[in-house]
């Protein structure tokens, strides 16, 4: 037996080096640079920010840092509202995804085994078509001369077109639509693991369907619920395309504000500060997500 044990392939340590260097260089260091630029002053130049480190004539390093950008953002109600709006819209989108996605995921996990894969494929199929085009399709449905308004006018239900596009509800709808597969997948994975015998046992012990759902199925699928909500809510908080195309001017999401600061106002330091502030309140959910992911994966391997 000892001889066998010795022959396990030892994965060489170097395999970690390349991806590690890549991720540090292109994922970690960029944030440090963003942090640095968020502390520098806006100047009209190329690139449009002041140098933070300069060598003085005596050969000493002079560091110039300012918190003005942060002060500017936190004192301007526009940005504060944008943060508030982002969280509200992302959370509503995640909850709607959960409400729509749970029955779908449950239905798939309960269908005969040979139908499961095709049903799952049908969930991802729209995901493979362009994200932009999926958002765009809602513009055609909700617009003033769009499908919904045309139909409602035709049936005589309304007399003048409804204002359906360019509001917060449209943005929430767009997020729900585009992020739905990210909710269904983790839900399905956790629902599929529940053994039918557990549910039968609950019925045998006299539990009603609702009671069984609340005290057996829901707690057992909780990991899927948490992972799904994180996968939807975190990226949706910084979403740009959906609020831009569906949300109109009334939707102030932080991703949109960031885009405007960067591309229209060319104020890189303020854009950088917005990024850092967004990261500050996303970092906790991101770390929770990572812990969760790690635990789930190792758990699966041990099982």
């Amino acid at each position: 037996m000892k001889g066998l044990r010795l022959s396990i392939v030892r994965s060489p340590l170097w395999i970690v080096v390349l991806p590690y260097i890549w991720l540090v260089l292109f994922f970690l260091i960029p944030f440090l640079i963003v942090l640095k630029i968020s502390l520098s002053e806006f100047v009209i130049a190329l690139p449009p920010y002041d140098q933070m480190f300069t060598w003085t004539s005596e050969g000493a390093l002079s560091i110039k840092a300012t918190f003005e950008n942060y002060k500017f953002i936190l004192q301007d109600s526009l940005y504060v509202w944008a943060y508030f709006d982002s969280i509200k819209i992302a959370a509503s989108g995640a909850l709607l995804c959960l409400a729509i996605g749970y029955p779908i995921a449950y239905g798939i996990s309960k269908s005969p085994e040979k139908y499961r894969l095709p049903l799952l494929l049908l969930v991802i199929l729209p995901f493979w078509t362009s994200f932009l085009l999926r958002v765009f399709s809602w513009m055609g449905i909700l617009g003033p001369s769009g499908i919904l308004n045309t139909l409602l006018l035709y049936w005589g239900i309304i007399e003048s077109p409804l204002h359906l596009l360019n509001n917060t509800y449209a943005a929430v709808l767009g997020i729900t639509y585009c992020y739905l597969p990210f909710m269904i997948f983790p839900l399905y994975v956790s629902l599929e693991k529940i053994k039918p015998s557990v549910i039968e046992a609950s019925y045998d012990l006299g539990a009603k369907p609702l009671q069984t759902f609340l005290s057996v199925i829901l707690p057992l699928s909780w990991p899927g619920v948490v992972a799904g909500c994180m996968l939807v809510a975190i990226p949706a908080t910084g979403e740009f395309v959906i609020p831009e195309l569906l949300g109109g001017t009334e939707t102030l999401m932080i991703g949109k504000q960031l885009w405007i600061e960067f591309f229209n106002n060319r104020d890189w330091p303020v854009a950088a500060s917005l990024t850092i502030l967004t990261l500050v309140f996303l970092i906790t959910p991101i770390l929770i997500f990572q812990r969760f992911e790690e635990r789930e994966v190792t758990h699966e391997f041990e099982a």
Binding site: V16, P19, Y20, L23, V24, F26, F27, L28, I29, P30, F31, I33, V34, I37, P47, M230, L231, I234, P235, T237, G238, E239, F240, G255, L258, W259, F262, W268, A271, A272, T275, T278, L279, L282, P285, I286, L287, F289, Q290, E293, E294
Partner: peptide, 26 residues
């Protein structure tokens, strides 16, 4: 390392994009 490998999954694209551009400029 494991944080670095999981974080891009949920990082809003706009943050990844901006920070990479600033890296290239730097």
């Amino acid at each position: 390392f494991s944080v670095l490998t999981a974080a891009p999954l949920v990082m809003p694209e706009i943050i990844t994009g901006l920070s990479l551009l600033l890296l290239f400029v730097a």
